[in-house]
Amino acid sequence: MDTPLFEINDKHELKIARKIASGGMGTVYEAIQMGASGFKKRMAIKTLMDDAAEDQEFVEMFISEAKLVADLIHENITQVYQLGKFKNSFYIAMEYINGVNLQDFQERHTAIQENPPEDISAFMISRVCRALEYAHNKRDADGNLLGIVHRDVSPKNIMMSFEGVVKLTDFGIAKAVHHMDKEGDVLYGKVPYMSPEQASFKVTDARSDIFSLGICFYELLSGEILFGNQETIITMQKIMREDVPPIRERCPNISEKLERIIHKALNRDLEKRYQTAGEMGTDLEHFLYDDGYGPTNLTLEKYLKNMFPERVPQYK
């Protein structure tokens, strides 16, 4: 049975349906917003864990996340609805995604000993490119570039709904130009998906997110970990110093176009890497559509429902 989480007023409240995930500084729940005349809306609620709620730095990051992404309205970015406060802690109400994340997607393919199709993979990554392009180029009401960098592009933060829509989520450690005071002193992000400059404690820009997305793409197509799967100094050193193994060694039949795209995204030289996510997205779209009709949201929807039949009925 649903249990109340937050009472907004006498007639409006959020009710917990289930816990989705926990980690880092928060816990995410599926919840139902109750409104007047039987109104109901499913959403996700992100709350601070008890320990984090006592840490002023975590609280400030949590609030900054909500404020930073409040006006990020894009098909491929999870929408934030509200920053609220209950008792002594904050919560973020956001769009609920009926689907799986990229890690689930990879693990299912590993379990059946198959690599995902190139076109489906390229389509998903191209949608993340468009999400990043939008975020990177976002301006405030006065026309000033916000300078948003996600800094945590990783498989768990790339969602695919069962309607075939790709969503970049969790801007919890994203930075903007006016929130750069601690960068270079504190390491943020998941180590296995960091860019060389991020792992080196250097100031990051949009090109850092492109490198992280390149790692996701490499692992998606190859089915193998690129630099490591541990949050250790060894993984960081590999990211900073080791050459990226040619993906063709792991995927002998990979398209030459995709091969070039992946290695350009993973170039350690910032000037030789893709300069914008939009540029990478355009190259992927040329790969997908230049020769005819390529994948769409509907294509991905059908593929996901076929891959995860046991998860689909609850969303009918």
Rank of each mutant, 00 (worst) to 15 (best):
residue 158 I to Y: 01
residue 220 L to R: 05
residue 262 I to H: 05
residue 199 A to K: 07
residue 170 D to V: 01
residue 23 G to L: 11
residue 301 E to Y: 06
residue 3 T to Y: 09
residue 156 K to S: 14
residue 7 E to G: 13
residue 118 E to V: 11
residue 239 I to T: 12
residue 260 R to P: 02
residue 30 E to D: 06
residue 200 S to I: 01
residue 83 L to S: 04
residue 171 F to T: 00
residue 243 D to H: 04
residue 284 L to H: 05
residue 244 V to A: 06
residue 179 H to N: 14
residue 71 D to M: 11
residue 187 L to N: 03
residue 91 Y to M: 00
residue 1 M to L: 10
residue 294 G to W: 09
residue 192 P to C: 04
residue 274 Y to P: 01
residue 294 G to P: 07
residue 21 A to E: 13
residue 75 E to L: 12
residue 180 M to L: 14
residue 29 Y to H: 13
residue 53 A to M: 09
residue 209 D to L: 13
residue 160 M to W: 00
residue 285 E to G: 01
residue 295 P to E: 09
residue 82 Q to T: 05
residue 43 M to L: 15
residue 154 S to I: 00
residue 9 N to P: 05
residue 33 Q to Y: 15
residue 310 E to D: 15
residue 276 T to Q: 08
residue 251 C to P: 08
residue 268 R to C: 03
residue 253 N to A: 11
residue 273 R to Y: 05
residue 184 G to M: 02
residue 3 T to N: 00
residue 283 D to W: 03
residue 235 T to R: 08
residue 58 F to T: 14
residue 53 A to F: 06
residue 103 Q to V: 08
residue 36 A to T: 12
residue 198 Q to Y: 12
residue 42 R to L: 09
residue 295 P to M: 04
residue 48 L to Y: 08
residue 121 S to F: 09
residue 6 F to K: 15
residue 309 P to V: 09
residue 85 K to H: 06
residue 71 D to C: 13
residue 268 R to P: 04
residue 160 M to Q: 09
residue 115 N to T: 15
residue 187 L to H: 10
residue 269 D to R: 09
residue 2 D to E: 14
residue 165 V to F: 00
residue 181 D to G: 09
residue 126 S to T: 02
residue 18 R to F: 10
